[in-house]
Design a protein around this nucleic acid. Structure first.
Lengths: 192, 192
DNA sequence: CAGCTGTCGTAGACGCTGTCTACCGCAGGT
DNA sequence: ACCTGCGGTAGACAGCGTCTACGACAGCTG
């Protein structure tokens, strides 16, 4: 298990580190230390810090996508129910893996060019867009735009909630009311 | 004009720097250099880097709030029109002052405790919440929650658009369609 | 079997960062 | 005339990302 290549070990150490200690702890040298190699070793596989962080963030996207798919596997076929479950999973992921979630969207730390990092979020978006299309209401804009707006709403809730301003502004103690409001806004009133 | 206290000069230099060069350029030493003092000087007024960054972010919130208020001054009384203008201003601010916008919501860089930074966004939220309350639709959750959900949507659009995933996922070339979709979702269909 | 070659990791240096601490000039009060 | 305290300087320290020179060690070639 420890005999895998250094490249994978570095990414694994980085993932572990960002999950445990948060984004600011993910320094090149600290990752190298945890992987049991010298500070110069990562350079062989990741020319720059950004490349390593991007690989770590990639794992985050894969993890999030897998969790969403797992959630959807356990939920019935009603699109709205599925969307609700997806949304809940998204927010839970952001809250439970704060450091990773931050890193995933820190474009200044990530090189989305070479590693095609942005594209990594597309499968998840496709799942969301597909579900949104199934709940299509009359007089609607293109499905991709509707899905994008909903994604943005989820993301904004995750972000502002973590930042602390939403709890402060709404006076709520959890994000559930916000999530329900967002879903109602985008998908129409909840069924009776 | 240059005779103002060092404290104000440091903040001004930091604001200028973050607007010009982005968040990563705002180091303590660089700010000190631009303010024409030694690297240790800021410490007299800002015990730590975080304190200085927080003061800079505070200016950002003040600026954003002022811009929104200015915008609303030029717009008629219809709440929906006003909300649209507010939203547009928010997104434009995020796009035009990327570095500052990033800094403002980087809770890991800001000490919201001592400087009550979170509270700095409350006046803006109050304006938004007030307008939302005026467009209240039937069967609604508390106004604060609705306003929070809308804010989150705006914020998410700003964030994900800047990150690059929304342009990619929606195929749109500007954020206007997303904004209109979000407003329709939260405020109901646009008037004819 | 000897020698070469290329891969993988080490180790030290550089300039940058934030923080800490000792110092110094100089105004204002006694 | 002395002293006190404020405001800024300057040097040190550890940690960071990056760069470069070097060594160990595999596998192929003669």
């Amino acid at each position: 298990m420890d005999e895998t290549g250094l490249r994978a070990r570095l990414v694994a150490a980085g993932v572990d580190l960002v999950l445990r200690e948060g984004q600011s702890a993910v320094s090149l040298r600290e990752i190298a230390r945890r992987a049991g190699v010298s500070h110069g070793a990562p350079r062989r596989y990741f020319p720059t810090h950004v490349d390593l962080l991007s690989a770590i963030a990639r794992e985050g996207f894969a993890d999030l996508t897998a969790r969403v798919e797992q959630t959807l596997r356990d939920v019935d076929a009603d699109p709205r129910t599925r969307l609700t479950a997806l949304a809940r999973t998204y927010l839970d992921f952001a809250a439970a893996h704060r450091g990773m979630f931050e890193l995933m969207f820190r474009h200044d730390l990530l090189d989305s060019g070479r590693l095609r990092l942005r594209e990594t979020s597309l499968p998840l978006f496709a799942v969301l867009a597909d579900l949104v299309a199934q709940t299509r209401r009359p007089t609607d804009a293109p499905a991709a735009v509707l899905a994008g707006a909903l994604w943005a709403n989820l993301h904004g809730i995750a972000q502002l909630w973590a930042w602390g301003s939403l709890p402060l502004a709404t006076g709520a103690s959890d994000d559930d009311a916000l999530l329900r409001a967002a879903l109602e806004a985008h998908l129409g009133p909840a069924p009776a």
